[in-house]
Amino acid sequence: MQHELWPAEGQRRWRVITDTVMGGVSQGTVQLVEVEGRTAARMRGAVSTENNGGFIQIAMDLAPDGGAFDAGGFEGIAAELFGNDQAYGLHLRSTDLARPQQSYRQPFQATPRWQVFEFPFAALTRHRTDVPFAPRRLRRVGLVAIGREFDADLSVARLWLY
Results as ranks from 00 to 15, higher is better:
Gln2Lys: 14
Gln2Glu: 14
Glu4Cys: 12
Glu4Ala: 12
Trp6Thr: 09
Glu9Val: 11
Gly10Asp: 00
Arg13Gln: 15
Trp14Ala: 02
Ile17Arg: 15
Thr18Pro: 00
Asp19Asn: 10
Val25Asp: 03
Val25Leu: 09
Ser26Pro: 08
Ser26Ala: 01
Gln27Met: 10
Gly28Arg: 03
Thr29Phe: 01
Val30Trp: 01
Leu32Ile: 10
Leu32Tyr: 13
Val33Pro: 05
Glu34Cys: 07
Val35Glu: 05
Arg38Asp: 05
Thr39Arg: 15
Ala40Asp: 03
Arg44Leu: 01
Val47Ser: 06
Thr49Phe: 02
Asn51Arg: 13
Asn52Cys: 05
Asn52Arg: 14
Gly53Thr: 06
Gly53Glu: 00
Gly54Thr: 09
Gly54Arg: 03
Gly54His: 03
Phe55Cys: 06
Ala59Trp: 00
Met60Leu: 08
Leu62Glu: 03
Leu62Pro: 13
Pro64Phe: 06
Asp65Tyr: 03
Gly67His: 09
Ala68Trp: 05
Ala68Gly: 09
Ala71Gln: 03
Gly73Pro: 10
Gly73Arg: 07
Ile77Arg: 06
Glu80Trp: 01
Leu81Trp: 08
Leu81Pro: 12
Phe82Gly: 06
Gly83Cys: 06
Asn84Asp: 05
Asn84Ala: 13
Asn84Tyr: 04
Tyr88Asn: 08
Gly89Met: 09
Leu90Phe: 07
His91Leu: 06
His91Asp: 10
Ser94Ala: 04
Thr95Gly: 00
Thr95Tyr: 02
Asp96Gly: 14
Leu97Glu: 02
Leu97Gly: 08
Ala98Gly: 07
Pro100Arg: 11
Pro100Trp: 09
Ser103Trp: 00
Gln106Lys: 15
Gln106Asn: 07
Gln106Trp: 10
Pro107Thr: 14
Gln109Thr: 15
Ala110Cys: 01
Thr111Gly: 06
Gln115Ser: 12
Val116Lys: 05
Glu118Lys: 15
Glu118Phe: 12
Glu118Tyr: 13
Phe119Pro: 12
Pro120Tyr: 02
Phe121Trp: 06
Ala123Glu: 14
Leu124Cys: 09
Arg126Glu: 13
His127Trp: 02
His127Asp: 05
Arg128Glu: 13
Thr129Val: 07
Val131Ala: 11
Val131Trp: 00
Val131Pro: 11
Pro132Ile: 07
Ala134Lys: 13
Pro135Gly: 10
Arg136Asp: 14
Arg137Tyr: 01
Leu138Arg: 15
Arg139Met: 08
Gly142Pro: 06
Ile146Ala: 13
Gly147Thr: 05
Arg148Asn: 12
Phe150Ser: 04
Asp153Pro: 00
Asp153Gln: 12
Ser155Cys: 04
Ser155Val: 05
Val156His: 00
Val156Cys: 06
Ala157Glu: 01
Ala157Val: 09
Ala157Cys: 05
Arg158Ala: 12
Leu161Glu: 10
Tyr162His: 15
